[in-house]
Nucleic acid binder design. Structure first.
Length: 325
DNA sequence: AGATAGTCCTGTGGGC
DNA sequence: TGCCCACAGGACTATC
């Protein structure tokens, strides 16, 4: 389950191994990985596939960008740049095109030699040319097909790069972004009428956090996943955000050190597999902080893991005679 | 409009 | 042994 740190590792790998290269050809092995491409354009499947291939072919890959779990590669269409001019003042005028990538549950991006055998769940192959280097392939592999690729127009944004793909404008800044505002996070949280974990998983509120790191961050902050967002204090909000950043940075450090030449891997190398998790998947084992048995409850069709003592629930807490020692 | 079910997918593992 | 089904979950869509 790639979350922000894993996607960032992939972004760095693409930056190192694919940036500046030109897409010579595109092979779509499974059109389901293009489900989101040209949505609303009323194209049938062959036409969608064709428009994807056409938009990519002979484009140069610029510096890859990321917001939350969304990854995109701006495309250099300098040959047709004239059409992108004008439109002063309009805040949503497209400023270019991008290849938008989401890894979903099981997506991987690999840079391979053309001769390397096809991976089992290989979905899309981009042939990358280079003037002074050997040809390479950028391969998108995805077992469960929750992820995918699409071409999306770039529109102006607060993102450090100045724009985001139109298909990702609704995604909130992530906690590692320079412009991320803690006060906005707190106020948005207070306005919501929901539980903490649901808010953390809402990519329109704060992006980049998935089920695993949500549980870990809540544990670090000693907050229950069902705790109401409306009663959160400024201090608790800060604690939560600090927990989120701690978890994301630790995973990033673990993943960032383990990727190496020619191989950009999401699943195997990075993050949570190489570092120890405190509560996620640890049900029945002692809480590393207090020794109480970690519990698992089903919530939003997924597991929620927490320490019942360190993270007292809303209801039990109210019934308790006194504080939490 | 904000909150929440339902939907897409396939490999794994438990139960019988 | 083998089959079947529940389960895992990110994010979009539809519905209240």
């Amino acid at each position: 389950m790639p979350e922000l740190p894993e996607v960032e590792v992939v972004r760095r790998g693409i930056s190192r191994w694919a940036m500046g290269r030109t897409v010579e050809s595109v092979t779509v092995h499974d059109p389901r990985s293009l489900r989101r491409h040209a949505l609303g354009a009323a194209l049938d499947e062959p036409a969608r596939l064709g428009s994807f291939t056409t938009a990519l072919t002979q484009q140069r890959l610029l510096a890859p960008q990321r917001r939350g779990k969304f990854l995109w590669i701006p495309l250099d269409r300098s040959t047709t740049a004239a059409t992108a001019a004008a439109q002063p003042g309009s805040g949503t005028a497209p400023v270019g095109e991008s290849l938008l990538i989401h890894l979903g549950m099981s997506g991987q991006v690999l840079i391979d030699e053309p001769s390397a055998p096809a991976q089992k769940h290989l979905k899309i192959t981009l042939e990358l040319g280079g003037e002074d280097s050997a040809p390479k392939q950028l391969r998108f592999i995805d077992q469960r097909i929750f992820g995918g690729m699409q071409i999306s127009e770039l529109v102006p944004s607060t993102h450090p790069s100045g724009s985001v793909p139109a298909a990702a404008v609704h995604i909130a800044p992530d906690p590692l972004e320079p412009g991320f505002d803690e006060e906005t996070f707190f106020r948005t949280l207070r306005r919501r009428k929901t539980g903490l974990k649901r808010a953390l998983l809402d990519q329109g509120m704060v992006s980049g956090i998935g089920n695993i790191y949500a549980d870990e961050a809540l544990w670090l902050a000693r907050l229950h996943y069902l705790r109401s967002t409306q009663t959160i204090t400024r201090a608790e909000s800060a604690r939560l955000l600090s927990g989120v950043k701690t978890v994301l940075l630790a995973a990033l450090e673990a993943g960032g050190t383990s990727f190496d030449a020619l191989y950009v891997n999401v699943n195997g190398a990075s993050g949570y597999f190489s570092r120890s998790l405190n509560v996620y998947g640890q049900q029945g084992r002692p809480c590393p902080r207090c020794g109480t048995e970690v519990r698992r409850e089903t919530f939003m069709n997924r597991g929620s893991h927490f320490c019942p003592k360190c993270q007292p629930g809303p209801r039990p807490a109210r019934l308790r005679a006194s504080g939490r020692a």
